[in-house]
Design a protein around this nucleic acid. Sequence first.
RNA 1: GCGCUUGUAGCUCAACUGGAUAGAGCACCAGCCUUCUAAGCUGGGGGUCGCAGGUUCGAGUCCUGCCAAGCGUACCA
Length: 607
Amino acid sequence: MKKQLEILISQAVKTLKTQGVLAADLTPTIHVERTRDVAHGDFATNIALMLAKSAKTSPRSPALPTNMMGFMLAEPEKTNPRQLAEQIITALPSNEAILKVEIAGAGFINFFMNPNAQYQVIQDIHAAGEKFGLSQIGAGKKVQVEFVSANPTGPLHVGHGRGAAYGSVVGNLLTATGFDVHREYYVNDAGRQMDILATSVWLRYLEACGETFTFPSNAYRGDYVRDIAQKLVETHGKKFAHSSEIVFANLPLDEPEGGDKEIYIDALILRAKELLNADYRVVFDTGLNDILGDIKDDLAEFGTTYNQWFSERSLMDDGSIEKALAVLKSNNYLYEKDGAIWFKSSELGDEKDRVVIRDNGQPTYFASDIAYHWNKLERGFDTLIDIWGADHHGYIPRVKAALTALGADATKLNVLLVQFASLWRGEEKVSMSTRSGEFVTLRELRDEVGKDAARFFYVMRRSEQHMDFDLELAKSKSNENPVFYVQYAHARVCSVFRQLGEKGFTQDVSLGMANLAELNAEHETALLTTLARYPEVIERAATQYEPHLLINYLRELATDFHTYYNAHQFLVESDTLRNARLNLISAVRQVLQNGLTLLGISAPEAM
RNA sequence: GCGCUUGUAGCUCAACUGGAUAGAGCACCAGCCUUCUAAGCUGGGGGUCGCAGGUUCGAGUCCUGCCAAGCGUACCA
């Protein structure tokens, strides 16, 4: 309906252009909104206010650029907005859905719709079913959504959960609006952090083999490392064992002894590679595969799935990094300084240049990221969406700079930042420290509050908002918990349909459809309006990457339903009214179910 | 110091991207279960939209300057 009005208005504007009332070069964006106040009708547009300034512009205006600036610069002879609104209304093509059109305030045009038109949405929902709300505005454009991409050095923690929930819902919304979505997890299966993990596993393995020594301060200390080491013992026996005298011979000091923990761990990594040779990869991959497998299971149980798990190591193995750096070099964006290779990102908007190859010859994480993002674009995606933790925000300019330097289109890259969630248990803030005994993993969160509540809470707020996640609230089975509020509405509709037969009634959908006009109570009208908004909400939530709009909408729909439920009996004697109401509430159930499905949250039939 | 993000009711957050009288939930107070699930509903009080200017018919939203918080500012990932 909103779109139909926009089309009608644009036709009116076109007419006024040919009449010379409006300058021919104007291309106003027509914006129709739902009104907040019923006194203002159903829809409103501010088009007359927008155009008032530029109506009757002088003929020299075509020489001006047609962009927004040109539009602003054109010097208008002021037109009364209300008068212009009058002209627009006169030029408006007639449409049977429109009851009347009024001018209000400074020059708003308010549309009052024909009440009979509002019932159409029930027919639409019944016809479309689970497809109601889907659209094709994406027109099959290829979008890649990369999210979570946590290093496989340990289990996912609650901080990753928000990215997982947000990314999967954004993906669902884009799919629902006709985009061709590809979900991807970038696996950092190379690099120093993974070497630290492999070394940690090996040292725990040595302990399991009976060696005793002080565990490095900078190694991974989680219990899962011991578990992996134990598996290594079970499958390979003492094949990788060396005496601690040899392992720790001639190493620099660790931090507690007055040394540097980074230098110490690097020396240990080197030692592990020397002593294990080809077996190092076995230890490394055992750790990697174990943890990655756990992450995959964890995310799948959380309702987050991927099309592809992209290996960082593959970029090294197939020469992608070298190739990307070669192109940067030939485009004259690389130079050498202090033994390292630098990328001139400061020439392209970054605050300083960045190292791509360290003085020890190792490429930096940034180097593989350049190759990775280039690889993404070469795969033909129209849009890239990266979902990052907010602490990585400083990283955006350098990645964009790199794409530009490679001759690629950096504007295709869209980085969405997700702020951290702080965990609360009632009044008490939960420590996020890995060492603390408090639970920190996503799995533990799911065990405690459940998948539905966790997902709901994660996407309830705008992603850029800092978020407080209250575990007590998420767990509570009470009116304080918004998850149950929405699910309860769904369960209540299902319950009504269960009662239908028990009370000796039957349902006749077509009889209900023929008598929708009996749905004229205030609560019913409100519900019809809310139902009709659903496709608009999906479209907006998808194009703005704002899943919280869908959450807010579902809460409003649930409110409208609960209010209606308390005010009216559905299973009434009148066959026509009863069936009309059943058609209405089954439409509500359908929309609730569709929305919850997009959020990856269940729609229970009973609670 | 510089950069990014955020400041809205006692608390947690919305506000259709510049529109009409800034809205919800929680908390607090007062009511509603012989009728489809009370995990619900009805009513009530609550606001200098961080502060100060500016832009225009119109600003919580845009521009400038302050103030405050978080994050970043590595040859870490």
